[in-house]
């Protein structure tokens, strides 16, 4: 595998591109975990950022280890744990380490996680963070206006939950991410492929999103080869938990 791959280039060239979620434990040596996945090839690895609002090994450090081991990491960044200064610092760190893709999440609230006494930050939200990341990558500029001397390309992804709550609001979020513009979507579908198909036809195509590739969350072990969904235009592949 080529660790210098660009995600969008990979998507354009490959028949299908998949993302696997990569989690570390607090105590384990991440190198052992990396050794365990040596059979995994041709995929991208999304490194979780303190999942369940519980501290784990720094996602940026793990992403760097993966990169150095020949894998293509996607750095997950949440809005819960850091303010805009620290988040931009992390993105600068990712750029300097040659990490080329990030996945933005709001982050599960501490009240619902493993450390409910923690204070949450939420200085900026996911749309704003996506806009900042795009600005850093494409305009070489920080939010405060300072210029970045050595900016590299970051592919900015966001996690979507289009079937939750109010559909009008979900469409509005999609438009905002489209206009940011985000580079890829990771879609929570609750493994409801019939609903996904309906959403794909009525919303995704209507909003002219077909240029933005989608990864469909697959938590139920749906076999891609059994499902024609993965071959829909715009669907890059699966996101495995």
């Amino acid at each position: 595998m080529n660790p210098n791959h660009d995600l969008l280039t990979h998507i354009n060239r490959a028949e299908r591109t998949d993302i696997w979620e990569f989690r570390t434990t607090v105590t384990g040596d991440p190198r052992e975990r990396i050794e365990q996945i040596k059979h995994v090839t041709g995929t991208w690895l999304a490194v979780k950022d303190n999942p369940q609002a519980s501290p784990t090994l720094c996602a940026l450090a793990v992403s760097a280890l993966l990169k150095n081991s020949g894998y293509n990491p996607i750095l997950t960044v949440n809005c819960r744990d850091c303010n805009r200064i620290a988040l931009q610092s992390r993105l600068l760190g990712a750029m300097s380490l040659g990490i080329t893709a990030i996945l933005i999440e709001s982050g599960i609230h501490p009240a619902s996680g493993d450390d409910p006494h923690a204070k949450s930050v939420y200085d900026i939200d996911t749309v704003q963070l996506a806009g900042i990341a795009v600005g850093m990558s494409r305009r070489h500029q920080l939010l405060c206006g300072n210029t970045i001397d050595r900016a590299t390309t970051l592919r900015v992804g966001v996690r979507l939950s289009p079937f939750k709550g109010n559909m009008q609001l979900q469409e509005s979020m999609l438009r905002k991410y489209r206009d940011t513009p985000a580079d890829f979507f990771v879609l929570e579908t609750n493994d409801d492929m019939a609903r996904f198909k309906k959403w794909y036809d009525s919303v995704y195509c209507k909003l002219c999103l077909s240029q933005i590739p989608i990864f469909i969350c697959n938590s139920a072990g749906v076999k891609p080869e059994d499902n024609a969904i993965a071959s829909q235009k715009g669907v890059a592949g699966w996101y495995y938990r």
Binding site: S106, D125, T126, Q128, E188
Partner: peptide, 8 residues
Amino acid sequence: SLNGPCGG
């Protein structure tokens, strides 16, 4: 979340 629902 100033731009829309968080997804949670």
